[in-house]
C-alpha cells in the first residue's frame, strides 16, 4: 500500500492540486480567488507533464558519432530527437544483449501500463518499443524501420567496437540515474507561458470589472446586472 502510494506520489500530488484548483474555481464567488484556483488547476497539469518526463535509466539523446553511420540514415539520425530515440534504443538493445531480459521485461511492463509507477514510464516504453523495432523492424512503418536499422547498427557498434561514452554509461548505470526527457519540459514551458498570459488577461479583466462594478464578487455583479435589466424593463 505504502509502496503503491509512494510509487504514485507525484500523481497524487497532481490530482490533489487539480481538485484544489477546481474547488477554488467552483466555490469562490470572488473573481480573483477564482483565478487563483484556475492557476492552481493549471499548475497541476504542469506537474503532470514534468512527472511524465522523468525517466529512470534514461540517457540523453545525443548520438556519439553522427558521421559514422551514413548510408542514407545520416540525415535522420542527425536530428536531435531522432538521436534521442536512437540512443535510448541503443541502450536497451545493449541491455538486452548483455544482462538478459530483466530490464527489458521491466521496461515492457511499464510500456504496457504506463503511469503505473513514476519511474521510466515513457522512456522505458519507448526504448522497449524501439528495441523491439530493432528486432522486428518489418512490423512497423517505414520510418520506424529506418530508425530501427540505425539502432541496430548502433547496438552492434556498442557490443563489438569501442562503444561511445554515452552508450557505455547507459550500459553500466541505468538503474541509478533519473533521466529527464526534455520534451515535456519544453512543452510545459510553453504551457506556463500560456497560463501566465491567461492569468494576466484574467486579472486585467478583474481590474476592469472592479472599475465598472465596484465589486469583484460574483453575486454582487449579478445583482447589479439584474437591477440594470429591471431599470430597462426587460427582465
Amino acid at each position: 500500500m505504502v509502496e503503491l502510494i509512494s510509487e504514485r506520489f507525484n500523481y497524487i500530488i497532481v490530482i490533489a492540486l487539480m481538485m484544489i484548483g477546481l474547488y477554488g474555481v467552483v466555490s469562490s464567488a470572488n473573481l480573483v480567488k477564482r483565478l487563483v484556483g484556475l492557476s492552481i488547476f493549471q499548475t497541476s497539469v504542469f506537474l503532470l507533464y514534468i512527472t511524465m518526463g522523468k525517466v529512470f535509466g534514461g540517457v540523453p539523446p545525443i548520438l556519439p558519432y553522427p558521421a559514422e553511420h551514413g548510408d542514407g540514415h545520416g540525415s535522420d539520425a542527425g536530428h536531435g530527437t531522432a538521436a534521442a530515440h536512437a540512443g535510448e534504443g541503443a541502450h536497451h538493445s545493449v541491455e538486452a544483449a548483455h544482462d538478459g531480459d530483466h530490464i527489458q521485461s521491466d521496461a515492457q511492463t511499464h510500456g504496457a501500463t504506463p503511469g503505473a509507477t513514476q519511474s521510466d514510464a515513457h522512456a522505458g516504453a519507448q526504448g522497449a518499443d524501439v528495441a523491439h523495432g530493432a528486432s522486428q523492424a518489418a512490423s512497423h512503418g517505414d520510418l520506424r524501420e529506418r530508425v530501427g536499422e540505425a539502432v541496430h547498427s548502433l547496438a552492434e557498434q556498442a557490443a563489438h567496437h569501442d562503444a561511445g561514452p554515452a552508450a557505455y554509461d547507459g550500459v553500466h548505470h541505468t538503474a541509478e540515474i533519473i533521466y529527464s526527457n526534455p520534451l515535456p519540459h519544453v512543452l510545459i514551458l510553453t504551457a506556463i507561458v500560456v497560463g501566465v498570459a491567461t492569468l494576466a488577461v484574467g486579472l486585467a479583466l478583474v481590474v476592469r470589472i472592479r472599475e465598472s462594478y465596484g465589486t469583484i464578487e460574483d453575486s454582487a455583479i449579478a445583482r447589479a446586472d439584474y437591477s440594470d435589466e429591471i431599470e430597462r424593463g426587460t427582465a
Partner: peptide, 17 residues
C-alpha cells in the same frame, strides 16, 4: 461584456487544460 469575457476565460481555460 466584462463578466461574459471573464466567464469565458475561466471556462476556456478549463477546457484548454
Amino acid at each position: 461584456a466584462l463578466t461574459a469575457s471573464f466567464n469565458y476565460l475561466v471556462l476556456g481555460t478549463i477546457g484548454a487544460t
